[in-house]
C-alpha cells in the first residue's frame, strides 16, 4: 500500500480536479445529511426541551428511551426503514425505497434521538437557572420552551453538530435503503464502502480524507460562531 502522504496527495488531487462525479457525491451527502439534521432538529429540539423543562408522568422513561436510542446501530435503522418502505411493506406504495428521501428518513431516525437527548441535557441545566424567574414572570409552557431553546441556541448548535457528525459518517443505514445506486443514491460513505470492496484502498482512504475535511470545516465554522457567542456571555 502507498504511504499516507501519497494518499493525502491523492485526496487533494481529487478535490483539485473537481471531478464532477465526486462533486455530485459530496453534494448528495451534504443534501441528505443536512436535510436529515434539520428535520431531526425540528422534531428533537422541542421534544428534548419539553423533557428537559417539564415534570410529567413517564418523563424518566422518555429520557431513558431517548438515551438508549442514541446508540441505535445504523444497520438496524436501515433494516427497519427498508421493511417499511419495501414494496411489500406498509409504506411501499410511496415508492421511496432507493431514493435520497429514503436515506433522509433513515438518517432522521438515527439523529433525532441524539438531538433530543442532548437538548434535554442542555435545556435541563439552563432551566434550573431560569425556573424561578420564569415562574415569577408567569411564563407559559410554550413560551418557556421557546425561550429556553433560544437562550441555549449556541449550545444547541453543538448538539446539531453531533447529529451531523453521526449522520454524515454512517454507512449502514443509507446503503440498505439507498442501495448505493450510481448517480442516484451514492454518497461519500457508500462510495468508500464500494471502493474498499473493490480493493481500491487508496481511493477509499482519499475519499475518507475528503469526508474528514468537510467535517473539520463544518466543525470549525460552528466553533467560530460559538466562540463569539461565549464572548457575549450568550453561550
Amino acid at each position: 500500500m502507498d504511504s499516507f502522504g501519497s494518499i493525502l496527495t491523492e485526496a487533494f488531487g481529487l478535490i483539485l480536479i473537481w471531478d464532477p462525479d465526486l462533486i455530485e457525491i459530496i453534494g448528495l451527502s451534504l443534501r441528505v445529511t443536512l436535510t436529515a439534521v434539520i428535520v431531526a432538529c425540528v422534531i428533537g429540539l422541542p421534544l428534548g426541551a419539553a423533557v428537559g423543562a417539564f415534570r410529567f408522568p413517564g418523563r424518566t422513561i422518555v429520557a431513558v428511551v431517548l438515551n438508549a436510542l442514541m446508540g441505535l446501530p445504523p444497520v438496524v435503522v436501515g433494516l427497519m426503514v427498508y421493511l417499511m418502505l419495501s414494496a411489500s411493506g406498509p409504506l411501499g406504495p410511496l415508492q421511496l425505497l432507493y431514493t435520497p428521501m429514503a436515506m433522509i428518513i433513515a438518517q432522521t431516525i438515527l439523529v433525532t434521538p441524539i438531538i433530543a437527548a442532548l437538548t434535554k441535557q442542555v435545556v435541563e441545566d439552563l432551566h434550573r437557572e431560569y425556573v424561578e424567574q420564569f415562574a415569577s414572570l408567569g411564563v407559559g409552557p410554550l413560551d418557556r420552551v421557546g425561550a429556553l431553546l433560544w437562550d441555549a441556541r449556541y449550545s444547541l448548535l453543538t448538539v446539531a453538530l453531533a447529529g451531523f457528525g453521526r449522520a454524515v459518517a454512517e454507512v449502514g443505514a443509507v446503503i440498505i435503503v439507498g442501495g448505493n445506486i450510481n448517480h442516484v443514491t451514492r454518497v461519500m460513505t457508500t462510495t468508500i464502502a464500494l471502493e474498499t470492496s473493490k480493493g481500491n484502498l487508496e481511493l477509499a482512504l482519499a475519499l475518507g480524507v475528503v469526508l474528514l475535511a468537510i467535517a473539520l470545516f463544518v466543525n470549525a465554522a460552528v466553533m467560530a460562531v460559538r466562540a463569539s457567542a461565549v464572548r457575549a456571555a450568550y453561550a
Binding site: E24, L30, T35, T99, P100, V184, L194
Partner: peptide, 29 residues
Amino acid sequence: ALGLALGLSGPAMAQDDFIVVQSTTSTQN
C-alpha cells in the same frame, strides 16, 4: 430557507423512465 433549499430542490431526481436491477457485487465491482 436552508431546509427548503436542501430538501425540496436538488439534482438526481431524474426522469421517471428507470428500472431497478437487483444484482450482485461481482457484476458491479
